[in-house]
């Protein structure tokens, strides 16, 4: 494996969800998503509707990776925030260490408010994710990952499930 797995325990997940819920309320946003820089969705809170948040997470990570590449070409380390303003819906993305905080908002809010509230919550999110990484490393070190005992038969059975 390229890296050891990231493991999110329930308590930590609910802590992150609570931070997202608070941000959504404070920013009057439609939806808030926390995404890993590699494109994996970590947690989401808000009006989901029919929105495909898995694709949104993957595209957001691609977007940040591409603009990060452009930043390096012009001598910047990265662009810490990205905003895309549409006619009705807009997106604001903040890069917080190895995670991305994505806020979807409409005319009930404003870019300024979303930027301000995102910044306010970013330190707490960074701390929470640092705890997730510590948990993951500890679990990898003490062998308490849930798949340490997985058998070949169990892996094979995945491919025969309907």
């Amino acid at each position: 494996m390229a890296n050891s797995p990231i493991l999110i325990r329930e308590q930590r997940y609910h802590q992150i969800k609570a931070l997202l819920a608070r941000l959504r309320l404070d920013a009057s946003a439609r939806l808030v998503v926390l995404v890993d820089k590699d494109g994996q969705q970590i947690a989401v809170h808000g009006e989901l509707g029919e929105l495909d948040t898995t694709s949104l997470a993957s595209l957001a990570a691609g977007n940040v990776a591409a603009t990060g590449g452009m930043a390096k070409l012009i001598g910047e380390r990265e662009f810490p925030t990205l905003s895309h303003e549409g006619e009705r819906e807009s997106i604001h993305i903040s890069v917080i260490g190895r995670v991305l905080l994505l806020v979807v908002f409409d005319d009930r809010s404003s870019l300024g408010l979303v930027k301000l509230r995102s910044k306010q919550v970013s330190q707490e999110l960074a701390q929470a994710f640092a705890e997730v990484e510590r948990d993951s490393q500890a679990s990898a070190a003490d062998g308490s990952l849930p798949f340490g005992e997985i058998t070949d038969e169990e892996i094979d059975s995945l491919f025969s499930q309907p």
Partner: peptide, 15 residues
């Protein structure tokens, strides 16, 4: 990087 989420009971891997 593999993500294991206990709350949603999901493993996510990237190929």
């Amino acid at each position: 990087m593999t993500f294991i989420n206990y709350a949603s009971r999901e493993i996510n891997c990237k190929i």
